[in-house]
Design a protein around this nucleic acid. Sequence first.
DNA 1: CCAAAAGTGTTTCATTTACACCCATGA
DNA 2: TCATGGGTGTAAATGAAACACTTTTGG
Lengths: 232, 232
Amino acid sequence: MIEYSGQPHYLVAVDCIVFGFDGEHLKVLLVKRGLEPEINKWSLIGGFVGPDETPDDAANRVLKKNTGLTGIYLEQLQIYGEPTRDPIERTLSVGYFALIDINKYQTQINDDFHAEWFLINERPKLIFDHDTMIADARKKLRYKAALHPILFEMLPKKFTIPQLHILFEEVNDTKIDTRNFSRKITSTGLLEKLEEKDRLGSKKGAFYFKLDKKKYHANFQKFLNLLPNEKS
Amino acid sequence: MIEYSGQPHYLVAVDCIVFGFDGEHLKVLLVKRGLEPEINKWSLIGGFVGPDETPDDAANRVLKKNTGLTGIYLEQLQIYGEPTRDPIERTLSVGYFALIDINKYQTQINDDFHAEWFLINERPKLIFDHDTMIADARKKLRYKAALHPILFEMLPKKFTIPQLHILFEEVNDTKIDTRNFSRKITSTGLLEKLEEKDRLGSKKGAFYFKLDKKKYHANFQKFLNLLPNEKS
DNA sequence: CCAAAAGTGTTTCATTTACACCCATGA
DNA sequence: TCATGGGTGTAAATGAAACACTTTTGG
């Protein structure tokens, strides 16, 4: 029988950076690690890739297990392969970032799986290279969000432009003119204005919008220009 | 001793899609596979990840071995992890795409390592999922080339705007107005005009330019708009 | 002198920015 | 009525696209 004799074998894992938005701040979902080493320390949601699944499958599986959610927006970040990144045994990890609506399944998340949301800038120190992963994920989130309408994935079905505006500012850590922002967003043609207004945020109230899913998916690869251009 | 008992271990490989440009067409570098299975079939340049190297290290190593070149532009594409993608044994492969100046080391490539350049659209059928990898790499190359000046990596130190123009058309499989193109490229401020002209391509001759490396690296993350916008 | 490619000029149109100002409403 | 955020109007600046036209030079 043919074999790749003598080649080394490694463990392969996935780790997911799960982003959420509470209406004010960007958050990340962390879990208390359940196995040695570093048991009970905070870490990203992850797990080993099983024999009959792809890394994508594994990421979806661990996400479902830890959040109860399926069909989450999930994107491969990169592979993390430093030989000594896991002190016990060489493990390569495929990093993913996921965007979810934090309101949607908050109960399940916290009660069933001992996961917890942290403000992105006030999180505990994480195991291994997970802090690097989060930094990389934030960078990629910014990059993609400037060109593609992915941030909608973090909002509820009904949302207002001011909510979206705060989210954009939060992700990009910058101030954006509200007036131009609302025009830019609506001019993408991806939003459907609803009758209803949100009256909690202000006296005047802000109209709710929902995503036009068809146009969203059809235009996903197009380059949008969702951020103000830097002046040099 | 602590261990991740019972978790499966896999082989981990890298595969590189190496792009080059011969002045007219986009090409890809392939090698005749030297081990079973599928020995002597054409495949991407690849190899297993060694115990003391990261996947990035491994990619650079196999590139050096097969091209003689170091310092090649290299970017991680994604992981390929279908359980049965390698019929002998489960192997996950990290895909990379590389951009090189085809003129630079053509001799070494062909004589020392039995690698060969193929027109991207007239290549032999490749082993495993390597055709999928090439398709993905082309897509990503287009995406990045529309926003960042990476195509310069495929040209010699001195190049003309018409050469660059052909390369852009080739990569994007589209016609681009030469007049607007040259203005767009020069307006990035990344090019330095040289005294010398290339007189081979035309009677009038086209000025050579070279990259301003400092500005190139400083502006690499900025979003440029290097392609004409589609009209809808 | 002519053909052919390089590259500049110019007009038109679209997008982006900056910011004045109006709107709606709860307290 | 007034403070507060939501949202529209608008003018100026910038950028992109279309395309006429000039330049250069080998044959």
